[in-house]
Amino acid sequence: MDIFLQQIINGLVQGSIYALVALGYTMVYGIMGLINFAHGEVVMIGTLVTITVAGTLLKAGMPVALAGMAGLMAAVLVCMALGWALERVAYRPLRHAPRLTPLITAIGMSIVLQNLAMMLWGRNYMTFPSLLPKVDFELAGANFTAIQIIIVLVSAATMGGLLLLVYRTKLGMAMRATAQNPAVASLMGVNINRVIAAAFVIGSALGALAGVMVGTYYEIAHYQMGFMLGLKAFTAAVLGGIGNLAGAMLGGVLLGLIEALGAGYIGDLTGGFLGSHYQDIFAFVVLIVVLMFKPSGLFGEKTGDRA
């Protein structure tokens, strides 16, 4: 029983992070039908920027809380700028190109960003500074930390804020209208370029936040960390129905839970033949199953009724 509860907690934490990253994929896809494969790298750069900024400030003797906040702010700002630049430089010139072209560009941008990060931060694993106090709790035989609670709560609050933005503000309505019919949204006076840029910038800010969470949680970072995280978050977005915000949130949490429970029980189920280091296969088994049986995902629209 305690391993079950333990894995549920671990899955929720990991799932909240997937959900935040998945939102970046799904927002961009919802508005312009593009899979921004470079999004995982944006998350990675968020983590590495935090290491540099918070690490430097800590060494200079700044209190942990302040250094952590500064690191987070720096990551969010850098990633927003990066998201904006990606759209402006890599995708906008291809707005009317065949669908495969921006997809290949996205993969190219992903490689460019990885190499850029390697040049700036080196190839070695880096230690993420301890920004949150290590407090442990115990509940019915399962252990969890303050960091885990904070990750889940901050993700939930951020996602709530995003839903308010999309469903209660003028910008949000413009984004939804643009997603449904960009030409007519433009007739209504919506500057399509600005709305698309906003989707990239907001998605990147969420990605930066997720990057800081990943760093805080695993205390380690690397220039290639965005690749697997990005693929899994993309899987989460597909699971929920890509283009659908609630779908990305649910898909992220579900994927985290599936992975955690799978990793927790795979040893018992296979009589010790496969161990928990096979964790990564679950995400991709999920991706394959979803694509085979329900390619539109849990909340996805049946067919593309995009105009």
Partner: peptide, 30 residues
């Protein structure tokens, strides 16, 4: 293109072009 409406010209497009997944009220707000 998005400034045409600011000059006072509103086009009702061929095929209507309503936003299908916005409510009637939200369409009017748009």
């Amino acid at each position: 293109p998005h400034d045409i409406i600011r000059k006072g010209i509103a086009l009702v497009p061929e095929g209507r072009g309503v936003f299908p997944r916005l409510s009637v009220l939200e369409n009017l707000e748009m």
